[in-house]
Design a protein around this nucleic acid. Structure first.
Lengths: 129, 129
DNA sequence: CTTGACCTTACCATCATTGGAAGGTTTACA
DNA sequence: TGTAAACCTTCCAATGATGGTAAGGTCAAG
């Protein structure tokens, strides 16, 4: 399988596959005589694992750790759960932050006439008035 | 006022003040004979405006637009409200995305024993099993 | 045999921010 | 007056994850 086919099969772009290889997240695959990377089903499986982890918001570093645990048949599920739980907490912190912004902005937008007049509580707030 | 004092007065780091100047978000200030930047209260006010806009999650580009509107006394508040409203929508989209991740992860974490055994529904999900 | 679709490496850009190095200036204190 | 600390200056590099592009080699179908 060429890198393009592996990309289509995994949902990870060829560009990112090369990048993941360059940072050591995945192993360098064998090459053909003409220097093309060659992938098999196992590699695609790994790429899909990575894709899914990234989709769930895990950083590449966390993904590397999860990948290591996945490939370690003697891992304790507690370790995985701990990473997931910490990630959930980080996501919830982020959500709370964003909701704080939303709350403030909604209040300001609600107070703003939004017409042709220049008076604008949104700008007043930004200016600290 | 030196850049360090302006930084302390505005909450924007000296580093970022120089950066904002370099990208044209703020005007280049006067300099002393020894080439030090000199700021006054107006400049600090602008920096605080920028700081507040960034805190509310506006991009630097959006901040530049808001700054322009702030300094245009004939602006229509509708224009500002439109930007704020669009930004609220973007934030809410992001929140929904994150909450989707949280929902999935909580479900998986709930199903995972989190003990010394290797069986782990979290990894199984990531692997696509 | 040519054409188009692939592959390769090697850069550059994004976005906002931080860090550091190397060197000049100002201030405070002995 | 000397000096050391705390400033300031510019320039360059890195972050994280990805997209883009350019220059060149390869493969497969017509």
């Amino acid at each position: 399988m060429n890198i393009g086919q592996a990309a289509r099969a995994s949902g990870v772009s060829a560009k990112m596959i090369r990048y993941y290889e360059s940072i050591g997240l995945i192993q360098a695959p064998l090459r053909t005589d003409s220097n093309y990377r060659v992938y098999g089903n196992d590699e695609v499986h790994v790429l899909r694992f990575i894709k899914r982890a990234r989709t769930l918001g895990f950083s590449v570093d966390e993904t590397a750790t999860l990948l290591g645990l996945w490939q370690d048949r003697t891992r304790a599920s507690a370790e995985v759960k701990q990473i997931a739980t910490a990630h959930i907490a980080a996501l919830e912190t982020k959500v709370a932050e964003l909701l704080g912004m939303v709350r403030t902005l909604k209040h300001l937008a609600h107070c703003c006439n939004g017409d042709e007049r220049p008076d604008c509580p949104i700008l007043d707030d930004l200016a600290g008035d």
